[in-house]
Design a protein around this nucleic acid. Sequence first.
DNA 1: AGGTCTATGTGACAATTGTTACTGTAAGAG
DNA 2: CTCTTACAGTAACAATTGTCACATAGACCT
Lengths: 208, 208
Amino acid sequence: MQDSLKKTFPTFSNELIQEIQEHASIQSFKAGDVMMRTGQYINNTMLVTKGQLKVFREGENGGEFLMYFLQPGQACAVSMICATKSQTSQITAVAVDDVELIIVPLSLMEKWMMEHRSWNEFVIYTYRIRFEELLEVVDNIAFRAMDERLEFYLKRHSDACGCKDVKLSHQEIARDLNTSREVISRLLKKMEQRGLVQLHRNHIELLN
Amino acid sequence: MQDSLKKTFPTFSNELIQEIQEHASIQSFKAGDVMMRTGQYINNTMLVTKGQLKVFREGENGGEFLMYFLQPGQACAVSMICATKSQTSQITAVAVDDVELIIVPLSLMEKWMMEHRSWNEFVIYTYRIRFEELLEVVDNIAFRAMDERLEFYLKRHSDACGCKDVKLSHQEIARDLNTSREVISRLLKKMEQRGLVQLHRNHIELLN
DNA sequence: AGGTCTATGTGACAATTGTTACTGTAAGAG
DNA sequence: CTCTTACAGTAACAATTGTCACATAGACCT
């Protein structure tokens, strides 16, 4: 574990890695698992060591909205925030692949802040990255229409998986963008006519 | 200045306040001044000591979008982010009242992080508060229609000024919500018919 | 009073998005 | 192979929002 930790979190000091090994636990999830749900009580922070996960915001009436992905080497800023106040989660997290996490309890999270410079910097870095990501999310919904948001969404997915095929149904895309399946079908069809994508069953091939 | 600093930032240690007095400078703005513009180069963090300011996100095509207010005792999280990377600003800030700021250069900002626990906690706290605020913003635009967003906007303004009168033209409101004046007029008229507000020239009175 | 702003009201229409209803079709189970 | 189910296409309509055009009204100056 030490080696993989050092690889995934290269900025962590040796002492910090030592502490993590001694005190933190590991948790695994299968692809598709709901790892955290809105309203759930949280008192630890999660570091991603393997796999990829999606973080959603949920509306009162059951709507969902994809905010960002988390990759190995990253941490969930929302879990840090909630953990700090020992609050309930304001987001839902779903495993995209099989995921492995390091669980850091609140007490340690605060203790390390003063003891390990590399932890402190990691926390600040995490806030910063997520904050910037959220700014982009705000941009997208505030300034762009659904067609542009869809294009952006597809590009992000293709970047995340490193290939030109997005293996999602129209229904799943609609959920992530908080709209309806029909709207997505309509817009995808237009994109196909413009030669941007090739539509297949259960996956979309990006051209160009 | 020492007393007012201590009052506005009660969590700061005496040593930190001492350092601020020695090294930081003060800057003033008049109501309506644009304090920071998208694209401007930033290498310091700003702490609000007096007055109130609005923070906007700007779209490519000239649109604006109000994200949050900053009050005395708070700091601009975006300026922290940009300062950390010595980047250009991704937001626009406008003074609502006459505003007074403490300017903390990047070098000190980083130095204090390790030297002053109260500064470190303040930075974390600032990220946390702004992050939560941004989550609310995302909620509003992702899950709510313009009429609800308008109601929320008016309530926020009335809270901010502590009175039941919002002294804004329809045009200004439209800019803040990134829509058109006509839409705001229309929705306000409906609110008036529902007995929620009383419309006057250049200000809106909240009832109930 | 008359003139000149700016703010507001409003109707008509376009564009986008949401909703309903129904069709066809591919994939997988038995 | 056939049945079932999930996925995708599409037409028609509703609702919301954006845009254009123009009317009205108050504020302010001279």
